[in-house]
Design a protein around this nucleic acid. Structure first.
Length: 292
DNA sequence: GGTAGACCTGGACGC
DNA sequence: GCGTCCAGGTCTACC
């Protein structure tokens, strides 16, 4: 089955795929040039499929090696738009970026969209797995989680979808600690999966929420394991760019860029990007830090 | 509201 | 091969 989905112009698939490290986290995969995207997903009907996404004129094509019913096609259509931000209009940001040499790549390569997972649950778990560990640790924990609990792709059981909240909820803290080696993050991931699974928390509803960013942030901070950095990261994924995901790396590069390498705190990072207003998260994210 | 210490893992390093 | 130290955000208890 094949479908073509248009994108709000301008759009560049490789820029979205390479927008951050998510592409290195299963069940995402890509070729060396980032010119295509592969993603294994378990649909609402239970079917597990591999989405193979490529750029076409004015949008993307999605190929799946299966026949799908209308409901499944609609779900994939909806998810691909979300994952690639195909409906996002970043025109005001591009206009501002035109005058900033450090954002030249934003204009030249049409950067600005951020790759998202199919569900906010998946992005929240992945974000928790980025906290207090090196990037290698995030990759290891995520891949083990997918390998341990993800539903298998029938045509290639080696490939798996990201586990559903229901699947993880059926596990226990000890398994997450000893098998997946999530460490102290185990109760956080388990708690999140269980509150979604039993209907206490409707995380996916936040995708379309119109509530002010400050309220959205409060909702995210209520999730165990999600602090200031993680909440800001998730707000970026939700298309709200008015908080910065400030980690130790941010303190280092912002200090070098704006404060001559002097020790700084989160306040100085925020101040450095204040002039970008509602776009400050994107300005920070796509800033040219290559000299550091 | 601010701060100190614990949490957990893997990698780097010295022996 | 073993032991020690360190980096990485968040939580909780305490002031």
């Amino acid at each position: 089955m094949e479908m073509v989905i248009p994108a709000y112009a301008p759009f560049d698939l490789a820029s979205v795929v390479g927008s951050h490290g998510w592409i290195r986290l299963a069940p995402f995969d890509s070729d060396e040039n980032l010119s295509s995207l592969r993603y294994v997903d378990q649909l609402g009907t239970g079917k597990v499929v591999a989405l193979q996404i490529q750029a076409v004129k004015d949008g993307v094509s999605v190929h799946i090696d299966d026949d799908l019913i209308r409901e499944e096609r609609a779900e994939i259509h909806r998810k691909v738009i979300w994952m690639l931000g195909l409906d996002q209009d970043l025109t005001p940001f591009y206009k501002m970026a035109l005058n900033e040499p450090k954002l030249a790549s934003v204009v030249e390569r049409v950067r600005g969209r951020i790759l998202r997972s199919a569900t906010l649950f998946e992005d929240t778990v992945k974000t928790i797995l980025t906290t207090n560990t090196a990037w290698g640790g995030t990759i290891r924990m995520n891949n083990t989680l997918v390998k341990s609990f993800g539903a298998q792709l029938p045509s290639n059981p080696e490939e798996r979808a990201f586990p559903s909240p229901e699947t993880i909820a059926l596990s226990d803290e000890e398994t997450l600690r000893s098998t997946v080696r999530l460490g102290y993050r185990s109760p956080y991931v388990l708690d999140l999966a269980r509150t979604i699974s039993n209907g206490e928390l409707d995380l996916e509803a936040l995708k379309d929420s119109q509530i002010p960013t400050i309220e959205l942030r409060k909702s995210l901070l209520n999730i165990k394991g999600v602090g200031g950095y993680a909440a800001a990261n998730l707000l970026m994924i939700l298309g709200r760019y008015d908080y910065l995901p400030i980690d130790s790396w941010a303190l280092k590069v912002v200090s070098n860029e704006f404060y001559n390498g002097e020790p700084i705190g989160p306040l100085e990072v925020e101040t450095s990007f204040e002039r970008w207003g509602e776009w400050k998260g994107l300005a920070y994210w796509f800033w040219d830090w290559s000299s550091f």
